[in-house]
Design a protein around this nucleic acid. Structure first.
Lengths: 204, 204, 204, 204
DNA sequence: TCTTAAACGAGACGGTACGTCTTGTCTTTAG
DNA sequence: CTAAAGACAAGACGTACCGTCTCGTTTAAGA
């Protein structure tokens, strides 16, 4: 027993999500208009409004849809190798068409919790998971400190890559990946005992 | 010998810049409208358009005007102390009203080079200078590696602070400052010899 | 031997025609929507469109359906009596629910020949027939001129009644019927010889 | 001391009224859209809405504006001559572009009192005035009955002309004018004493 | 003082996009 | 094969601003 009436058109649904992603990457979030999405998708405005009640809702679904399965789990055997791959993956993402969309999203994140959550789940969450495993392995090999804030390390990497992508996209080359990897590995493996305050604390 | 006619009204000028900063911090860059600036400043729209030909130009001047002399040079005697103060200063900036404006600016930076340059000169340039001195002193004390990319370290700090301010403003507390300082200090002082490539290079 | 498949629903057919008439009398022709007809008839939109290809076609059938046998043939023995009854019948029609529908129809007649024809056949044709007989009898009694344009006299009566119904429905009372009858009878029985041109013609 | 701000643009005002009249004559009242008026006038929608709050209001002004000084006062010396000129004037009006507009207006009159009033004041009022003078003169010459309802006579003429214009525009020729004049003159000059009822009444 | 001319406030202008509504058509499942 | 349901493309609705423009008024320097 199904609902009567004409079912939702899969073609329209797809066309709208695609148009949204393309327009987002071209004009950014604030300049994205539902009218333009409908026109680009070859669809009536009503069809968009029927299924998504706001621009944010539409963007959220479009981004989730576009970002399915985009993080691989690196396991090269060394902290440096794994980190480099994670950073390289981030750079690849930031440089992809979806990257421009995500930049726009993060830019809007402080004004719309829905978008913040989307950026978080698409860019950060999976990477934190991956990074957690990565650091566990590293710790077992004695390559990493045990008092790390994984979320902070992830934010460090993500923020820096997206910041650079925004401020100087040309600089996102292999050298950048190397240097950032260096800093992260050093930070992650650095002996906290070097620090007098922490030394004092751990002694006391 | 001055131009004939009524001179520019200093009061209007000030009122417009102030209104711009306030509105920027309230609604962000994309939603900032000249109409609203004019209304808030108690000024005709034409007066704004007479002196600034675009929203970007207006924002650039307003931000520069608001950001005069906001970075102190820390010198605590230790890398960790100096770093902590730098980070704390960044957090303070990001949490200030101007901080919200700058966030918005950095968000828009990938669409407008003029804004990128402004963010760069107001937030990054002076801090890179400060960080350079800070690291020089640290190196002289043997606390820092000698092969550091200062710009990258600065970007790391700035990007992370502003990223957190965007994604989770509540988390910008003392603990955050500590952890970020830890990571930066570890990264900056970390032994590059741990890296096989660099090891090979230093050996060869 | 019947056609295969589900037969046309007589109930739907009736409900649609009735809904059409009621809505026509309420909102008029231009504001009549197939959607509203379907809703009022408790029927799917498609069912209406299946059987009538346009609003005009639907209205034409509905009006013909509603107007079956509505003109009686007066024969009171005098021109005045017959005329009064004809006019009274027109006023009754114009005041009836169907009258409002016909007004709307005549209003739209200049944009749609199909509607013109319907108005003509429902309102005018039968009345011209009646009026022809009426005037024949009058002429035989010496009450009417012999050079009358029957169609014009009919139009005069119909147009005036419907015009008044539109412009001032409250004025369609017995006095109005009297006065209009007066004018028509006078016009119909008036001596054409008063007219110099016609005088000249009849002399020559 | 005048109002501050830019004054209303006379050109836009004119263009909007003209566009309204032209579109009315092309598509009729119900199909007239403010959007189309604005486009045709080369004007923003907002400018139309700023000065007229509804379609009806706009149409009312446009029609009044277009109808300034369109009724001449005939005085040929005879009832027939004056009547013929009045009828001919009506036919000319109904055949003019404004005529199509007025037809549309009268069609809508039963749904909108504002439009009724406009049709009345533009088409009827001035003609009733003229007809009153015309009949006064005729009565002084003994050409007309003294118990006439001038408004009814006017309605008769106006309704018939507009009815014909709607139902059969091609028939609005000189012959039509002649026949209608005949009937009107006969009706107006017909001896009411011929009528037994009235005779009885006047006797009693 | 009087003249001059730019700067000013106000706000109308031509536009564009909004989100809502209704149109007639199309496409499904149920009967 | 019809009926009902309802999704669809299209486009007008009236609103809200956009950035430009055109007014009458204000204001200070130069004559």
């Amino acid at each position: 027993m199904t609902r009567p009436g004409r079912p939702r058109s899969a073609a329209s649904h797809r066309a709208i999500l695609d148009a949204t992603i393309h327009l987002l990457s071209e004009v950014g979030y604030p300049a994205l208009s539902i009218e333009a999405v409908a026109a680009r998708a070859g669809v009536g405005k009503g069809t968009v409004y029927r299924w998504w009640s706001s621009k944010a809702e539409l963007v959220v679904e479009a981004v989730h849809d576009a970002a399915l399965g985009m993080v691989a789990e690196p396991d090269t055997g060394s902290l440096r190798g794994d980190t480099r791959e994670l950073v390289a993956g981030l750079v690849a993402l930031a440089c992809s068409p979806l990257g421009r969309v995500l930049e726009a999203l993060s830019a809007e994140a402080d004004r719309n919790p829905q978008l913040r959550e989307t950026f978080d789940s698409v860019v950060l969450a999976r990477r934190q998971e991956v990074a957690t495993h990565l650091l566990d392995r590293a710790r077992r090999r004695g390559e990493a400190r045990s008092d790390l804030d994984v979320a902070l390390v992830c934010d460090l990497a993500v923020a820096t890559v997206f910041h650079r992508a925004r401020m100087d996209p040309g600089a996102l080359d292999g050298g950048f990946v190397d240097h950032l990897t260096d800093l992260l590995v050093a930070g992650v493996s650095g002996d906290p005992a070097q620090h007098p305050d922490r030394l004092a604390r751990s002694v006391g």
